[in-house]
């Protein structure tokens, strides 16, 4: 706890600070609204297009579908790619381990847009046809495959050593140890990390709308906006859609994590708190928590100071 349970004086101070801060927020909100009103952004005709079915069926829903489609396909392909790279990085043979390591580090240190642009040209060169969809999916697979490789590696390393030793002791071969002992335990433990990586993928599909011209939600929305002349309301609605989707995914990740904590079994791999991002995923610190239910394990979302027991 950074502060004591407030006594009468602290409560008074808190109240005063709250009132000042609240008034500040209210003033800010009032100012924003008055700017919006003075620029004619709050008028009915700017917002009514969202009541028209046509706006949704022609622009927004196809855009949303394109976003989800690219994200889903990327994850489905990136998972096996990440698993193979992650396992390859743990190989006993240097000639497998090193190339895998270089591939993973290479694709993690390059911006996704650059990968998408390259994939776009590569596809065009190979098949003589432009495919923004393929460019987006390939770019996302290369990047997220590398990020997931690190998640897989951390997950496998988090399985207690005794498991491997016991498996060898009963005479299993290396490949058997990996496939029937380590992987099943690792997969359950890293499920939360994989689900939070979904948020990153969903957000990154929006990169496909700028240089390679994939008509995902943001791009579809900008076409709708130029049609109805309501840029601000359209981007507002799109932002809300993204926030809802990603909050749901984030909650799913926490839920899965909590489920896994309460059941007995392997440890839970956790990516650093801020990692629901292109971001940390870059070179994130993967924390490997030891035992479920031990003192160091607290629900990830609720680790604010005030909740510390």
């Amino acid at each position: 706890m950074l502060y004591d349970i407030p006594g009468p004086r602290a409560r008074r101070v808190n109240l005063i600070v709250s009132i000042i801060f609240g008034l500040g927020l209210a003033a800010l909100a009032w100012w924003v609204l008055s700017v919006l009103a003075s620029k004619n952004q709050l008028t009915g005709e700017k917002w009514s297009p969202f009541l028209e079915a046509q706006n949704w069926t022609t622009y927004l829903l196809p855009g949303l579908w394109a976003t989800l489609e690219a994200a889903a396909l990327s994850v489905v392909i990136a998972l096996p790619v990440g698993a193979s790279l992650g396992i390859a990085r743990l190989s006993d043979h240097g000639w497998i381990r090193w190339p895998a390591g270089i591939v993973v580090e290479f694709f993690r240190s390059i911006p996704v847009i650059i990968l998408m642009l390259f994939a776009f040209e590569l596809w065009f060169f190979a098949f003589d046809a432009a495919s923004p969809f393929a460019a987006v999916v390939i770019g996302l697979v290369l990047y997220n495959g590398s990020v997931l490789a690190e998640v897989f590696r951390a997950g496998i390393l988090a399985v207690p050593n005794g498991q491997t030793e016991a498996a060898f002791a009963i005479g299993l071969r290396k490949s058997q140890v990996m496939t029937i002992i380590l992987l099943p335990q690792a997969i359950t433990s890293m499920l939360p990390a994989v689900v939070s990586q979904l948020v990153v993928v969903v957000k990154d599909t929006a990169l496909g709308g700028i240089l390679v011209g994939y008509s995902e939600l943001r791009r579809a929305g900008s076409i709708s906006a130029s049609n109805y002349g309501n840029l601000l309301p359209t981007y507002f609605v799109i932002a809300v859609i993204y926030i809802v989707i990603n909050l749901l995914l984030g909650n799913l990740s926490t839920l899965v994590e909590r489920k896994l904590r309460t059941r007995r079994g392997g440890p839970v791999v956790e990516i650093e708190a801020g990692a629901q991002t292109d971001l940390m995923a870059a070179r994130q610190e993967i924390l490997v928590l030891d035992e479920p239910g031990s003192a160091s394990v607290m629900p990830q979302q609720e680790r604010g100071f005030d909740t510390r027991p």
Binding site: R218, A239, Y242, I243
Partner: peptide, 15 residues
């Protein structure tokens, strides 16, 4: 952090 960066940057300029 749940809004795509692309959307934020484009909103900064266009909106």
């Amino acid at each position: 952090r749940n809004i795509p960066l692309t959307l934020i940057i484009i909103m900064m300029s266009q909106v």
